[in-house]
């Protein structure tokens, strides 16, 4: 009984508190760099697409709103032929970024992407791909991977020995 009265009194006192609300369009808050907003595709330090079309983002997506098709260039380098995110379904959970092995897909602190027409929330690769590296600098997956897709020769990547000469006789 008393505790009820007490909470009534405490709530009543909130009449004199400062309000927490940020009056958004007039007043804007600073969003942290890791804020999960609009999704972008980034480029590696050599200005090539980072996405290798591995489908892990699509697999991680709980609402299945990412769809892509991998293809390869004349060197065999994998990249997405199309990459589509349906933002009308996206819940900005960031799992795609977490799943991405190449830092290609990143969520950035931009949320002002409302549309009157739902169709406009379907973003294709051209809409997603940005010019820079995003939050993570200096990483180029194809230099770490073992494959030779025209980025580095076999054995020239990070942590790689020269290719084995199968014909050598040394023990």
């Amino acid at each position: 009984m008393f505790s009820n009265l007490r909470s009534l009194w405490i709530v009543f006192l909130h009449l004199f508190r400062k309000r927490e609300t940020v009056e958004y369009p007039e007043e804007k808050t600073e969003l942290p760099a890791r804020w999960r907003g609009r999704i972008v595709l980034t480029r590696d330090p050599d200005y090539e697409e980072r996405c290798v079309g591995c489908y892990l983002c699509a697999a991680a997506c709980p609402v299945d709103c990412i769809s892509l098709q991998a293809t390869e260039d004349e060197n065999g380098r994998r990249y997405p032929e199309f990459f589509r995110i349906n933002f009308s379904r996206c819940i900005f959970c960031g799992y795609c970024e977490e799943a991405c092995p190449t830092y290609a897909i990143q969520l950035i602190p931009d949320f002002e992407m409302a549309e009157y027409d739902r169709q406009n929330l379907v973003y294709e690769k051209e809409d997603l791909l940005i010019e820079g590296q995003g939050k993570y600098h200096g990483y180029n997956f194809y230099k770490e991977a073992g494959v030779d897709f025209g980025v580095k020769k076999k054995g020239e990547g990070e942590n790689e020995n020269k290719p084995v000469d199968v014909r050598k006789l040394m023990p």
Binding site: Y55, A58, A59, C61, V63, D64, C65, I66, S67, L68, F82, R84, I85, N86, S88, R89, R118, Q119, L121, V122, E124
Partner: peptide
């Protein structure tokens, strides 16, 4: 059961 892209694969034609 891990099939992906259900809600995006046809959206280039229609978002519904």
């Amino acid at each position: 059961h891990r099939y992906t892209g259900r809600t995006a694969m046809h959206t280039n034609i229609n978002v519904s």
